[in-house]
Write a protein that binds this DNA or RNA. Structure first.
Lengths: 203, 203
DNA sequence: CAGTTAAACGGATCGCTATCCGCTTGGCAA
DNA sequence: TTGCCAAGCGGATAGCGATCCGTTTAACTG
């Protein structure tokens, strides 16, 4: 006796499609959020401010985006997908086709560029929820990618763990520290990356 | 015409001694904070809770300790000084006397132990203010120490920047990630550190 | 001991986060 | 077209972080 009132068969593991009003509100929320960040910076991006600016209830903003960190991540989503496309399927040396050592170096340099490009939002997202940074889909994709390259370069080592180590110095907060507190520029950072890769024997 | 009503000559660069009531209240605040953490965990450590538990006004708690992150750091202070004493002036291989490569390895292993030992408080402090982690006195001491060892091992490289890179994977939040999300143990982490040091050519 | 002053005190207050729960509505079946 | 109901909605609410400012007090001087 399955009395579940399902009329369309549920698709295994797939989320049901978003209702029209929900989709419309999500757009309005994202637009308002982007406007606030552009006009007043990430500090002004509060859930209340977004709700007010978009004319949508606070509860709804929370329903869609959980907290500020997730809202910030959503703002990064488009650019993030582009970046993933580049290192997964783009032209070498970032994409497939180049030797692993070259790809690793190109990837880390590109990651520095990609991070500085949207520095403020990325930093705000990491600060708003530091633990989420490690488990976020983008970070997982990067970690998997670096692990694959390391496994190719050094069969036998624990590539997964080493990938975490290699990525740690390129987190938004660390880059911010290097730039703001140590006065380093992007060039100096990339040069230090090269130095560490040489020492790692990945150069 | 210096009309400054200074009676005791101000000591250059020195902070004036703490007033008796201020010192007493600081102790009471720290005791209450330690009690709260021990009994209910770091999540329960709010400024309001500390003020209430110590019978001291909220404003005073903020005057002494700025925010939750600094209050947590103050709780770590004693143990932190012990650790510094060990790697700055203790017995080898952690302290002076051993070759630089051995000291570096011993230091990173000891840092993992020291971090896991007070894992909860260290993580809470980093999460409460991620940017402060990099510039905190303990972290600066570690960075300086590692930079010194690297400079000895590899004259010519930018030891300061490389030290930041070497320390990044051993932050409380990263260790938490490795342990909680990747299921690694302390032994596996130390072994990965050794692996990276070997690759770095520091082994 | 009395006077003076800078420092410390502490509660009132504001904005933000996050949750809860009664009301509304989109989308589907008959 | 009508009825249904899960999903969505959004305002009220509570707790926390952080600041402000009038009041109190320690410590030093003469």
């Amino acid at each position: 006796m399955d009395t579940a009132p399902r009329h369309r068969l549920p698709i295994a593991g797939e989320a049901p499609p978003e209702r029209a009003d929900a989709a419309r509100n999500r757009r309005r929320i994202l637009d308002a959020a982007a406007r606030i960040v552009a006009e007043k910076g990430t500090d002004a991006l509060t859930m209340n401010a977004v709700a007010h600016a978009s004319g949508i209830g606070v509860g709804t903003v929370y329903r869609r985006f959980g907290d500020v960190a997730q809202l910030l991540s959503a703002l990064l989503d488009v650019r993030e997908r582009e970046f993933q496309g580049q290192f997964l399927a783009g032209p070498p040396p970032l994409g497939p086709g180049a030797p692993a050592a070259e790809r690793l170096r190109a990837f880390l340099h590109a990651l520095v560029d990609r991070t500085t490009e949207q520095h403020e939002i990325l930093l705000a997202a990491e600060v708003a929820d530091p633990c989420a940074h490690y488990t976020s889909p983008p970070q997982r994709a990067r970690q998997t990618h670096v692990a694959m390259l390391i496994a190719e370069l050094r069969p036998g080592v624990d590539a997964g763990a080493l990938a975490e180590f290699v990525l740690a110095p390129v987190s938004p907060s660390m880059l911010h520290h290097l730039i703001a507190d140590r006065g380093m520029g992007v060039a100096a950072i990339k040069s230090t990356i090269d130095e560490s890769l040489r020492l790692y024997g990945f150069g």
